[in-house]
């Protein structure tokens, strides 16, 4: 199969994720969209790795997964504590840290 198709797919997933981040208010959904973007990148890395015939892209993809996992841990913790205090997961409510 033509590896370029994987790139199209990655671009599509990334766009969906980006649109989700921009449009949705719910922190959980937002979070999932961020993950979607990360995974789109991973897909692209792997596809490039395949296309160029070296392993650099795959190594980066592993790094990304590790970082994403760590991010999920911290991010979810924040969202949970936010929900506990405000009973809402809307990011627009968390706008107090401005000058």
């Amino acid at each position: 199969m033509n590896p370029v198709n994987y790139l199209y797919l990655a671009a599509l997933l990334f766009t969906i994720g980006a649109a989700g981040v921009l449009i949705r208010k719910n922190a959980i959904v937002l979070f999932m969209c961020v993950e979607l973007m990360l995974n789109a990148c991973n897909l692209a890395f792997v596809a490039f790795s395949r296309m160029h015939g070296n392993l650099d892209g795959q190594i980066i993809a592993f790094f990304t997964m590790v970082v994403a996992a760590a991010e999920v841990v911290v991010g979810l913790a924040i969202i949970v504590s936010m929900f506990r205090t405000r009973h809402s997961a809307s990011v627009d409510d968390a706008s107090l840290m401005k000058l």
Partner: peptide, 11 residues
């Protein structure tokens, strides 16, 4: 411009 809305920063 710093309105505190995460999504506007994202934009």
């Amino acid at each position: 411009l710093q309105n505190g809305y995460a999504r506007s920063y994202a934009v």
